[in-house]
């Protein structure tokens, strides 16, 4: 099986890579491009630790083939901060202890940003259902939900 050349934009930068026809976008990000922020928690789309956006849509990168990203725009956790300036979600997660081990955090941040892009003022229930695809085993979600609410409020008033 020959590798396929793929041209994409990742976190705003033009990126080209070669990947096998059966290689997932997650494998490409982690193993070929050194973007290890997205994590593999299950490889079956159940845990959300590998969440990225592809053309603005929230996806589990373990369920997307690298080749499918041709011509696409990908955003990962590594692109969330603007240089030194953390995204309000990132800052709220630190300030309000919304992470413990932190391995689900990249996926949850990407998913939460995707929610706030669509709905700047979600209810608690909307946040809980939107993040239902992102497993966290440490926090019981309580502080995560609150941090998303706080970041949303801050972004609305900014």
């Amino acid at each position: 099986m020959k590798n396929i050349p793929v041209s994409t934009t990742i976190n705003g930068d033009p990126i080209e890579f070669l990947c096998g026809p059966d290689e997932t976008l997650l494998e490409v990000l982690r193993n070929r491009l050194g973007l290890t922020g997205a994590k593999e928690g299950c490889g079956t789309g159940d845990c959300g630790a590998c969440s990225v956006t592809l053309n603005g849509r929230l996806v589990c990168s373990c369920l997307v083939l690298g080749a499918e990203a041709e011509g696409g725009e990908i955003s990962t956790v590594e692109g969330l901060a603007a240089g030194d300036a953390l995204h309000p979600l990132q800052q709220a997660f630190i300030d309000h202890a919304a992470l413990q081990c932190g391995v689900c955090t990249p996926g949850i941040l990407v998913a939460a940003k995707s929610l706030l892009d669509k709905n700047p003022n979600p209810t608690e229930t909307e946040i809980r259902y939107w993040l239902a695809g992102n497993l966290c085993r440490c926090t019981g979600y309580d502080k995560i939900i609150k941090a998303v609410q706080i970041a949303a409020e801050e972004m609305r008033s900014a």
């Binding site: 922020g37 969330l80 901060a81 992470l99 932190g102």
Partner: peptide, 12 residues
């Protein structure tokens, strides 16, 4: 370890 963990930099 907060910044490392919210930016994807922390090494697991």
């Amino acid at each position: 370890d907060g910044v490392d963990k919210v930016t994807g930099r922390a090494m697991y």
